[in-house]
């Protein structure tokens, strides 16, 4: 953006990118909070819940309105994905999948907001210099957010594994697979724990990696001056694919992992 060029003329490209990839943080060490990630995540979650709750309150089994139709399409899509993959009876998984899908979709969609737009608006409103404004509006490009989501899913995986198979059953599963012989139980345990931990880690890192890289490319494009316009457009169009796809993958893998946790071997 031209405003960026004017205010940050003194910054090199490297510094510009680094500046934009720094969160608005308060606190020290581990006990620091990324206010931008938290704020946008909570705001977008509230947007999702407000819209869906307002539709749910007025939901009629008769002829639905247009908003209700749209919401029902999303709900049916998630419900269909859930029923295709998970065959047990569980009242949590479908709403969990819906929350994950829509919330992540909205958080990912923040990637489309031009990288300097929000800092520029803040500087217009407060008179602060843009170099002093730290604002990373894509919560899913923050590893803390994606790890929190994947961690929530991981807790549920453990919870349902123990609930369905019992603690003994869960331990047996960890020790006796894939090799049946007792002498290989430690090897089994190592392999299974790696498999188990790889699930939330891959969930978190996949989402974070995609969105962080997307953000980074947007920032690189933003340093190109006038040439950024067509490139920015192309990259934004490409994100029509990336943004829903990543939300869908996260949702789908959550359902798959939880249905695996329900399966008794």
């Amino acid at each position: 953006m031209s405003a960026a060029a004017a205010t940050e003329a003194t910054l090199t490209s490297q510094e510009y990118i680094k500046h934009h990839l720094t969160n608005l943080t308060v606190g020290e060490g581990f006990w620091s909070w990324n206010l931008d990630s938290l704020g946008w995540a909570v705001f977008l979650g509230l947007v999702f819940l407000t819209i869906f709750r307002s539709v749910a309150k007025k939901a009629t089994p008769g002829v639905p309105g247009k908003l209700q139709c749209a919401v029902e399409m999303v709900v049916e899509f998630v419900d269909g994905s859930d029923k295709d993959t998970f065959h047990g009876k569980n009242d949590l998984i479908a709403p969990l999948a819906l929350t994950i899908f829509v919330w992540i979709l909205l958080m990912n969609a923040m990637d489309w907001v031009p990288v300097d737009l929000i800092p520029w608006l803040i500087s217009l409103a407060t008179g602060m210099d843009m170099a002093d404004i730290y604002m990373k509006p894509v919560p899913t490009a923050d590893l803390s957010t994606t790890l929190a989501l994947a961690g929530g899913v991981f807790i549920l995986i453990i919870y349902y594994s123990i609930k369905v198979k019992g603690f003994g059953g869960f331990m047996k599963e960890l020790y006796t697979q894939p090799f049946g012989h007792w002498s290989l139980y430690p090897v089994n345990f190592l392999l299974e724990v790696v498999t188990l931990l790889a699930r939330p880690l891959s969930l978190a890192l996949r989402l974070f990696g995609n969105l962080y890289a997307g953000e980074l490319i947007f920032l690189l494009i933003a340093t190109l001056g006038l040439y950024q316009l067509p490139l920015h457009f192309i990259w934004a169009v490409f994100h029509l694919l990336v943004i829903p796809l990543q939300a869908f993958i996260f949702m789908m893998l959550t359902i798959v992992y939880l249905s695996l946790a329900h399966e008794d071997h």
Partner: peptide, 15 residues
């Protein structure tokens, strides 16, 4: 950092 705790709480509440 601690953001992960905040996000986890938000996630649980939303779900």
């Amino acid at each position: 950092n601690a953001t992960i705790i905040g996000q986890l709480i938000a996630f649980v509440v939303f779900v």
